[in-house]
Computed example of a mutant assay.
Amino acid sequence: MNDLLHEVLSAHGGLERWRSATTVHGRVRTGGLLIRTRVPGNRMADYRITVDVQQSRTVLDPFPRDGRRGVFEDGTARIENDGGEVISSRENARAPFFGPSGLRRNFRWDALDAAYFAGYAMWNYLTAPYLLTRDDVEVSEGKRWQESGQTWRRLHAHFSPRTPTHSPRQTFYFDEEGLLRRHDYVAEVVGRWARAAHYSTDHVHADGFVFPTRRWVRPIGPGNRPLPLPTLVSLQLSDLRVEF
């Protein structure tokens, strides 16, 4: 295993503990320009989340309204009622974001679009850095990076098409304690131009793991520096717990 990846896994709970975990639960409050414009009414303002650690599955509850929940699972998005009955579903939910069907999605997402985006993204966020140990992810250490008066170490990750994620190539930044501070990617379902710097702070301990609870996303400008505005997505996580 890459030495830096081993260090950051230890800082976030340790590889063996991650391997034994089954689900992460929490509460999420979401805002930002992207959510306000693509998801009318901000149906993601406040919801409970359950993420499977060992497979790509996320449940958002309630979503898009009380009595319904959004489910992302292995590339499929669906809306269920509280009893688990499927109300609507979409196989290969990523494909409609591209080509002619993607034109409408440049302005507005339906509930299945939003469930897909939030589902795969939150699965990525809440399983990182364990996500980087998957067999279909290649990692290498990059040059150190200076920001905010600190020196951060960087891991470059190359994801295969089998992993539902933002883009094939991403970069993760870790501070001197090995904690995740920044994550760069292209949010391809938003647009191939959507280069984003995703920041993480306010790390907390939960059942032997460490998670950042305050997150925000800014566009990347010249010199790989974030632009001061707008905040594309903001996330506030709470009530985190892990099951085994």
Score class of each variant (00 low, 15 high):
residue 5 L to I: 07
residue 8 V to S: 02
residue 8 V to E: 00
residue 13 G to D: 15
residue 16 E to K: 13
residue 16 E to H: 09
residue 23 T to Y: 01
residue 26 G to E: 08
residue 33 L to M: 02
residue 33 L to T: 14
residue 42 N to V: 13
residue 44 M to L: 15
residue 45 A to G: 03
residue 45 A to H: 10
residue 47 Y to E: 05
residue 53 V to E: 00
residue 56 S to G: 07
residue 56 S to Y: 08
residue 57 R to L: 09
residue 63 F to P: 00
residue 64 P to G: 09
residue 71 V to D: 14
residue 72 F to W: 05
residue 72 F to T: 11
residue 76 T to W: 02
residue 78 R to S: 14
residue 81 N to R: 03
residue 83 G to E: 05
residue 85 E to A: 07
residue 89 S to T: 14
residue 90 R to C: 04
residue 90 R to N: 05
residue 91 E to W: 06
residue 96 P to F: 11
residue 97 F to G: 10
residue 97 F to N: 04
residue 98 F to Q: 02
residue 102 G to D: 07
residue 107 F to W: 04
residue 108 R to Q: 11
residue 109 W to R: 08
residue 109 W to L: 08
residue 116 Y to K: 09
residue 118 A to V: 04
residue 119 G to N: 01
residue 123 W to N: 08
residue 124 N to R: 01
residue 124 N to A: 11
residue 126 L to M: 13
residue 128 A to R: 10
residue 128 A to D: 14
residue 129 P to Q: 01
residue 131 L to H: 10
residue 132 L to G: 11
residue 133 T to R: 04
residue 134 R to C: 06
residue 138 E to H: 15
residue 141 E to V: 14
residue 142 G to S: 12
residue 143 K to Y: 00
residue 144 R to A: 15
residue 149 G to T: 13
residue 150 Q to K: 14
residue 159 F to L: 15
residue 161 P to N: 07
residue 165 T to Q: 01
residue 171 T to H: 12
residue 172 F to N: 03
residue 177 E to N: 04
residue 177 E to G: 02
residue 177 E to I: 01
residue 179 L to T: 05
residue 180 L to V: 09
residue 183 H to V: 03
residue 184 D to C: 01
residue 189 V to D: 02
residue 189 V to N: 07
residue 189 V to S: 10
residue 190 V to A: 09
residue 191 G to M: 03
residue 191 G to F: 10
residue 192 R to C: 02
residue 192 R to Y: 11
residue 192 R to N: 13
residue 192 R to P: 01
residue 193 W to T: 15
residue 193 W to Y: 15
residue 197 A to N: 06
residue 200 S to H: 06
residue 202 D to R: 02
residue 210 V to F: 01
residue 217 V to H: 08
residue 224 N to A: 15
residue 228 P to K: 04
residue 235 L to T: 03
residue 239 D to C: 03
